[in-house]
Amino acid sequence: MDAIILQILNGLDKGSAYALIALGLTLIFGTLGVVNFAHGALFMLGSFCAVTLQRLLSLSFTVVDPTKKDFLGNPLKVDTPYVVDWFGDAAGNAIINWSVPLAILFAIPVMLFIGYAMERGLIKHFYKRPHADQILVTFGLAIVIQEIVKYFYGANPIPTPAPAAFKGSLDFGVMIGFAENTIIYPYWRLIYFVFSAVIVSAVFAFLRFTTFGMVVRAGMADRETVGLLGINIDKRFTIMFGMAAAVAGLAGVMYAPINSPNYHMGMDFLVLSFVVVVVGGMGSLPGAVLAGFLLGILESFASMNEVKSLIPGIDQIIIYLVAIIILLTRPRGLMGRKGVMEE
């Protein structure tokens, strides 16, 4: 029983990342009809917003310490961050230590701008082109973004730790009557889950309860009619693209302490996120979230030894297996609109 609870927790956590990326993907598909293969790169850029802010906050001046030697036997050059010099040891180090949560504020405008620029600069020229063209151009864009990041940050993962206050893990098992150390779960991963739930709720609330959201939903249902009413739906959809980029970026920022960011991390999530969108239903926002968590939990269960001993290699194929079954039995996905992908 404890193993099952543990894997459900794991699955919720994995599903959080899938859901956030898939939410943005399906939002873009639902509004603009574009299959955006650069969405994983936006997730990666979000993580690198955290890396960048950490580096900015750690900007240092160098002082030579003649009492210590470097690896060549020369006097050691010691770097002191400006924030430590300005605010003192405790406050300065605390600011650097909290760089990941602070990066949320940094990432929102940056990612909104990147999303806006991406849509206006490139993707809008492909609205009327076939999906294959859209996939090619966005995939190419993803590779370009990856290579730019690699050029500036290198290929090696960059450690971007969570604040010290969130290190360690919660003994969840003790809280529900199990023995000590039976079900432990890292604090930061729990925060990630809560964070993603807040973001998903905020996006839904924005679309449900604001006039802007109402117009966007109307545009998703019938773009032409909304346009005939004199509403500039294209402008709103561009803003939605920026929002989708920001959601992917925020998912990336908060993911940075879970796995050290590297230039390739977007690609690792991209294919899985597409499967999530297909399983959930192309263009369906609740479907993306539901499928994200569902596939995250299934993937966790598939990596259990008990399951792997029954079906070797199941952990590598489970998501694709589910996708095949869904596409065969219900092509529009779990919550897709009738008619989508069913012609």
């Binding site: 404890d2 193993a3 543990l6 794991n10 150390n181 991963r189 879970i258 991390m265 690792d268």
Partner: peptide
């Protein structure tokens, strides 16, 4: 106690690590 083979493409090892202490 156990030897678990992890796919080379794995990026998140949480589901493999969670059962270790147990």
């Amino acid at each position: 106690v156990n030897n678990v083979l992890t796919p080379l493409a794995t990026t998140d090892f949480s589901s493999y690590i969670a059962p270790v202490i147990n």
